[in-house]
């Protein structure tokens, strides 16, 4: 466990970094632009998720390459890797794993560099601003042949105490099925 935390820390230290404010401002502008493209908030959530999935499928390569963690297709193990390595390495924060069971676990975190300066207006009550993160997790796990369902159950932007992403195991993908997902 401590091992994962250390790998994440090292990878983050070694990486080129930028100030988190430009990151969150940029993300905010993107979300605003997507909101303008689609009037329907549910569709915006879907688009953010899709963008995330695309990121996730690339990010995982880098995660394994930079940290040297062995690739594992064990669902329970992925929790620690995402929380301690993934979050740390890319966003500089760590998440906590809550209630891990073989079927699902939750990731909670309070600091979030994506939401500096963000306040949701009342007409965006259904917007899941950080839905991108769910997509990232889903996309990344897909690359190690794990299909999951992922969504925000608590969101600080909507007045909750903390952010909580719930990850639920769906199935282990066989190699042959994997080819299809690339088609």
């Amino acid at each position: 466990m401590a091992n994962f935390a250390r790998s994440g820390e090292m990878a983050f230290l070694k990486a080129d970094k930028i100030n988190s404010e430009i990151f969150s401002l940029t993300y905010g502008a993107m979300v605003a632009q997507i909101m303008k493209d689609y009037e329907d908030i549910e569709e915006v959530n879907r688009q953010l998720d899709r963008m995330g999935q695309n990121i996730g499928s690339r990010l995982i390569d880098e995660l394994f390459a930079k940290t040297g963690i062995p690739v594992s297709s064990n669902f329970m193990e992925t929790a620690e890797v995402i929380a301690k390595v993934g979050f740390k390495m890319f966003l500089g924060i760590t998440a906590n794993v809550v209630n891990p069971t073989p079927q699902q676990y939750s990731l909670t975190f309070r600091d979030n560099p994506m939401v500096d300066f963000v306040e949701l207006p009342d007409n965006c009550a259904n917007l899941r601003y950080c839905n991108l993160l769910c997509g990232v997790i889903r996309g990344a796990l897909e690359q190690v042949q794990i299909k999951v369902e992922c969504h925000f159950v608590r969101d600080m932007l909507r007045g909750d105490e903390t952010n909580e992403i719930q990850v639920r195991f769906l199935e282990q993908v066989r190699e042959s099925a994997l080819d299809q997902s690339f088609a």
Binding site: D16, E21, T26, Y27, L91
Partner: peptide, 13 residues
Amino acid sequence: SKAEVNLHAFSLL
């Protein structure tokens, strides 16, 4: 703010 994120995260986004 002193917080930083990985440049790769920005590029991927």
